[in-house]
Each structure stands twice: as C-alpha cells, then as structure tokens.
C-alpha cells in the first residue's frame, strides 16, 4: 500500500488498486499526517462535501460535516468555501446551508458568478445568460442589452431545448463567439440522483459553434488563486477538500495546493483491479442482494463496463482519499 504513484511525485495515499476502503482510510490518515503539518488554511468544496443537494428541504447534511466545520473554526485554521454552485445567489445559498446547521457566512464563500461579473466588466462584455433563475440577481449590475457573449451556468430545468438553442443562436451570430462557463463539472449528486452539470452544456455549445469556452470557477487556476488570496494563505500551506476528482482535486493541485478526495457526494467507487481476469474494458462487480433472513443473502456477480473512475483516475491522483470531511479534518487537526 502507499506505493508511489505512476506519473506523479506526490506520495499520497491512495486506496490501492488492491486494498479495501477501511484499510485505505487508516493508511490515508497516516500518510496525510506527514504533509498536513505545515497547513494554515483549508478550502472546502460545498456540494458533496458539506451536504447533498436536492429534495424538498434543499438538501441533506453529510454526517459529521457541520461538526467538522465548527472544529476547523475553533482550531484557528483559515477557512474558505470554494464552490461552483450557480443555482442560487450566494445569499440564498448560504442561508440554506445555515438552515442545515452549518456555521458559514457569505463573506467566506468564493463562487463563480461574482468572478464572472468582474471579468465581464473588465472586458466590456454584455452577456446573454443561460443560468438558473435564482442566479440572475448576481448579474443585476451588468449591462445585458445587445449581447456580445454567452454566460452558461448550472441552469438545471432552464436547460430546455429552446433556451439552449437561443444561447446557440446568440453565439453563432457573433463575429467572434465568446462563451463563458461557470465551472465545467460533468455532473453532481442530488438526493434523487446524479444530475448533468454545466460542463455538458458548455461542451454542447462548444461543439455547435466550434469555440472553446473560458471557464470561470473550478478548476480554473485564477479561481483558486483568488480564494487563496482572500484567505491570505500561499498554495503550499493550503489543502483543498472536495468530491470532484477533476475540478476540485486536479484544479487545486494545478495551483500548487495539496488536495484530498472525499468518498462522499458524486464520488464513484468503481475501480479496476490491475490483475482482474475480466476482458479488457470490463470489470467484475459484486453486489449483495439482501434477503429477509440474512443467511439467505444472495451474492450477484456481474460484468460492468470499466471507465475512468474517481479511485483510479488516469490523469488526477489525489494527495489523499478520505471517507468524508469529518475524517479529513480529524487527521489534519491531530497534526496541529
């Protein structure tokens, strides 16, 4: 376990290709401890780390996360929340989180919409917005007449054919199409299942108009840098904790930070044993079908397609895997 990873100098703990989750978590704690010593600030992703969004109450807290945030604040570590959330204004979003029991304020949140507004102002861009209704107030002070660019966010139900088509027509009608995307996430988890994120629609518009979007939000380097600046901590003394292997972990590492992958939120445990006897492109999946009498539980073994997963990602190797935020915080604080 804990053998150096191919392609990366970072030691880090990974749940090995050949180890169980529990064992890996313990191993992870020990490995992480070594480099967590000099840490001065933490960046936390919100959705999938603090809570799972969706449902009638707007979401469900992930066990132990509210307590973990309180512990960080009590420890004296700097703390910032770094989110790609674009379904609501920060005010509304923070209020929801407070309602779920989190100690969080608007001033502690770095989000893409304000960063996009700064960029639009700097470059004299007037956006056509393809965003969630609840995000629109963030753009209140931006001139939106006669648009010369498109801003796409996680519009959710607003991603109708008519709305996506309208954004497309604006873009294709521009001499030089400018597409600004609030994040590039593939999907996220809500209480009723996984949902397509802004990245899918960013890609759709890129393909339709043959343009490349400018990403504001994670994993853009500038976004992490502004969060670090707001916290006043250099990258090597900060740790990012997130559930998105590419946007959170990969993005933060690009910025020179350490990054920890939690096994909550959208995290998917599909893995491939290197020595697997399955045909290329396939892996064995074992599922227990519970019966009323547990001695009669059935074990189902099936072949499922193998694809890059969060535990064995071809490009991104987290510095550590932990089961959840609470575990990460306990290990980090034990080093202070």
């Amino acid at each position: 376990m804990g053998t150096p990873l191919p392609g990366g100098p970072r030691g880090g703990l990974r749940r090995g290709q050949d180890g169980g989750a529990k064992m890996a978590a313990q191993d992870g704690g020990a490995k992480m401890a070594a480099w967590a010593r000099g840490v001065r600030g933490l960046l936390l992703d919100i959705s999938g780390v603090l809570y799972d969004s969706g449902g009638s109450g707007g979401g469900v807290p992930i066990a132990g996360s509210a307590e973990a945030v309180r512990k960080i604040k009590a420890s004296g570590l700097k703390l910032r929340f770094c989110t790609n959330e674009t379904q609501a204004t920060r005010e509304k979003f923070v209020k929801k989180l407070q309602g779920l029991g989190f100690d969080i304020s608007v001033a502690e949140v770095t989000a893409p919409a304000p960063a996009a507004c700064r960029l639009l102002k700097e470059r004299g861009l007037r956006p056509h917005l393809l965003v969630h209704d609840d995000l629109v107030p963030e753009f209140a002070e931006i001139d939106k007449t006669n648009p010369n660019c498109v801003v796409v966010g996680d519009a959710a139900e607003n991603f109708s054919y008519a709305n996506v088509n309208e954004a497309f027509r604006v873009l294709i009608g521009l001499e030089k199409p400018v597409l600004i995307s609030l994040g590039r996430g593939r999907y996220y988890k809500e209480t009723d299942g996984l949902k397509l994120d802004v990245g899918a629609y960013m890609k759709a518009l890129e393909y339709a108009c043959d343009v490349e979007a400018e990403v504001v939000g994670k994993p853009a380097k500038a976004f992490f840098e502004s969060a670090l600046a707001e916290m006043g901590v250099p990258p090597r003394e900060a740790i990012m904790i997130g559930d998105d292997i590419v946007s959170d972990v990969g993005g933060a590492q690009q910025c020179g930070m350490r990054a920890v992958q939690v096994r909550t939120g959208k995290y998917r445990a599909f893995g491939h044993h290197r020595a697997s006897p399955t045909p290329p492109g396939w892996l064995l999946n074992a599922v227990i079908r519970p019966a009323e009498d547990p001695t009669r539980n059935e074990l189902l073994i099936q072949l499922i397609p193998n694809r890059p997963c969060d535990e064995n990602h071809p490009q991104v190797k987290p510095d550590a895997y932990v089961n959840n935020l609470a575990e990460a915080v306990d290990v980090i604080l034990s080093q202070l």
Binding site: Y161, V164, N165, F168, R169, I172, R186, Y187, L196, D197, G199, A200, Y201, K203, A204, L205, E206, Y207, A208, D210, R307, P308
Partner: peptide, 27 residues
C-alpha cells in the same frame, strides 16, 4: 450534425447533445 436550417433560423442538431452526454459520462 451540429445544427440545421429552419425557416426562422438555425436550430441545434443532435450533435451538441450527444457531445454533452459524451463529456459528462466520459464515453
């Protein structure tokens, strides 16, 4: 196909939606 022509202007074809699904699922 990226888009097609309709009487009242251009309209998105299946290509962009397929591309979006490909990206989201890494397939």
């Amino acid at each position: 196909a990226r888009y097609f022509k309709k009487k009242n202007g251009l309209a998105l074809g299946p290509g962009p939606f397929v591309t979006g699904l490909e990206y989201a699922t890494d397939t």
